[in-house]
């Protein structure tokens, strides 16, 4: 159901750009930037051979993360959905990004058993 969505675009939300104003560049989200600098643009092989398909590993990690989030939700752990800090404000976006990074790091730490990185307890915030 999408009828409950607010029709006017609230200007305070970071994800919405007010229309019809001066065409100053809007702050770009990380997703906007990554989408462009990783997937688009001219491809010329340099001397440093880096297979950007490797980047997909990152995407896969994020996907895995989402799967686990969904599973958590099925189990009734859905604090992030109801947390106003996480859902509406710029702070929420920053927090969300930070948590995402922490979770990716946690995933990495799990894989790299040789590293002594501490595993952040992401679910413990209140």
């Amino acid at each position: 159901m999408m009828t409950e969505g607010p029709s006017p675009v609230p200007t305070s939300r970071p994800y919405s750009a007010p229309l019809g104003q001066s065409p100053r560049p809007q702050p770009a989200t990380l997703a906007d930037i990554l989408e462009r600098v990783l997937d688009k643009g001219i491809i010329i092989a340099g001397d440093i051979r880096v297979n950007l398909l490797d980047i997909e590993l990152l995407t896969i990690k994020i996907r895995l993360l989402i799967v686990s989030v969904d599973k958590a939700q099925d189990m009734g752990i859905d604090w992030w959905r109801n947390d106003p800090m996480l859902t509406t404000s710029e702070q929420g976006l920053a927090d969300e990004n930070r948590q995402l990074r922490e979770r990716v790091e946690a995933l990495e730490a799990e894989k790299a058993s040789d590293s002594g990185a501490t595993k952040p307890t992401v679910g413990a915030r209140s």
């Binding site: 462009r36 990783l38 643009g41 001219i42 491809i43 001397d47």
Partner: peptide
């Protein structure tokens, strides 16, 4: 401008 993809590096 023609942007290059991230991490295009020559010696």
């Amino acid at each position: 401008v023609a942007p290059l993809r991230l991490a295009t590096i020559c010696l």
